[in-house]
């Protein structure tokens, strides 16, 4: 199980920084930083800049996203913001609005 879980119904307002896996099923507003993987569940809503080792989005993210490894935008996921990552996948059915910087 993931180290940190922001469950459905829970909302965090402020900075969340972690050294472990973070799963967001609830709401987060502010800033999210992790040195491990971050995943946003289908019920997750993030209004924050996110920086992580890797990021998987199945919910909604509004904010700039930076990943050391990769960003996966899954079907049903919605991302509004710029992406900075060396690898990016956008699944069929995902919504995305923003710039991509793949460090080339």
């Amino acid at each position: 199980m993931a180290g940190t879980v922001i469950g459905e119904g829970l909302s965090v307002e402020g900075d969340l920084s972690s050294e472990e896996e973070v799963v967001v099923q609830g709401n987060l507003r502010g800033k999210l930083t992790s040195t491990d993987a971050v995943s946003v569940g289908s019920s997750g809503v993030i209004e924050a800049d996110v920086s992580a080792q890797s990021l998987t989005i199945a919910g909604q993210v509004t904010g700039d996203v930076t990943a050391a490894e990769r960003v996966d935008l899954q079907a049903g996921g919605r991302l509004i913001g710029d992406v900075k990552a060396s690898r990016l996948t956008i699944a069929d059915g995902a919504s995305f609005k923003g710039n991509v910087d793949m460090d080339v």
């Binding site: 180290g3 940190t4 469950g7 829970l10 965090v12 307002e13 402020g14 920084s17 502010g30």
Partner: peptide, 14 residues
């Protein structure tokens, strides 16, 4: 769960 390696500066409610 707010895991061992996690720090939140802000309010948590829900």
């Amino acid at each position: 769960v707010i895991g061992r390696g996690t720090v939140i500066r802000g309010n948590v409610r829900g």
